[in-house]
């Protein structure tokens, strides 16, 4: 098992247990691996790479409760990245896009690319479309970095409603990404 696998897995497990600093490092390093992986597969759509990196990061975050600590992290990440890649190609090109080469998941963590291009799609604009009960908790807690209690005080929502708002808001954001792409 590779060094990256062990290291990233450890960071994620700590992140899932509530260590936000470790989780931040995990997402940061993961983004570089995802970028290299997706850039190698989206050779005909190079402008979409950064959008897909962001969409995959959001999916990893929203679906992080499906990671089983006994499972190889590479397999989990690879399956998510591949699912998002297929989804994008299907949205773009219809049925004939399904011929994606089978690839070796172990190569996912072998390469990394920290040169982020600009994303075409602005997630901040999509965030603005969310209803207040989801948007406000995200803006206060996730963007301004307030705690749950501070966010509850600032918005007049209950603490439980703040947590639910963040959770549902980020899921709704993923759904908005899919829809905005289909309308294009």
């Amino acid at each position: 098992m590779s060094v990256s696998e062990d290291r990233l897995r450890d960071l994620l497990v700590r992140g899932l247990a509530g260590d936000n600093a470790a989780y931040h490092v995990f997402l940061k390093e993961l983004s570089a691996h995802l970028r290299a992986f997706l850039r190698g597969r989206l050779t005909r759509l190079p402008d979409d790479v950064e959008d897909l990196v962001q969409e995959t990061l959001l999916a990893v975050h929203n679906q992080r409760h499906t990671y089983d600590a006994g499972q190889p992290l590479t397999a989990w990440i690879h399956a998510i990245a591949r699912y998002k890649l297929v989804d994008l190609l299907r949205r773009r090109a219809g049925r004939d896009a399904l011929n994606i080469p089978l690839d070796d998941e172990r190569e996912l963590f072998a390469r990394s690319d920290t040169e982020a291009a600009d994303a075409k799609r602005d997630l901040a604009k999509l965030l603005d479309q969310l209803p207040d009960r989801q948007r406000l908790p995200i803006v206060h807690m996730k963007l301004a970095g307030l705690s749950v209690i501070e966010t509850a005080r600032a918005t007049g929502m209950s603490e439980a409603a703040v947590k639910v708002g963040v959770h549902r808001g980020l899921k709704a954001l993923a759904a908005l990404i899919r829809r905005s792409d289909e309308d294009r």
């Binding site: 992140g15 509530g18 936000n20 600093a21 989780y23 931040h24 997402l27 940061k28 983004s31 950064e50 990196v53 962001q54 990061l57 959001l58 975050h61 982020a116 600009d118 994303a119 602005d122 997630l123 901040a124 965030l127 995200i138 807690m141 996730k142 963007l143 970095g145 307030l146 705690s147 749950v148 963040v166 980020l170």
Partner: peptide
Amino acid sequence: MKTDELISMLANGA
């Protein structure tokens, strides 16, 4: 939104 900003957003208060 830049990818680094998204990462901070996701990690903040997770």
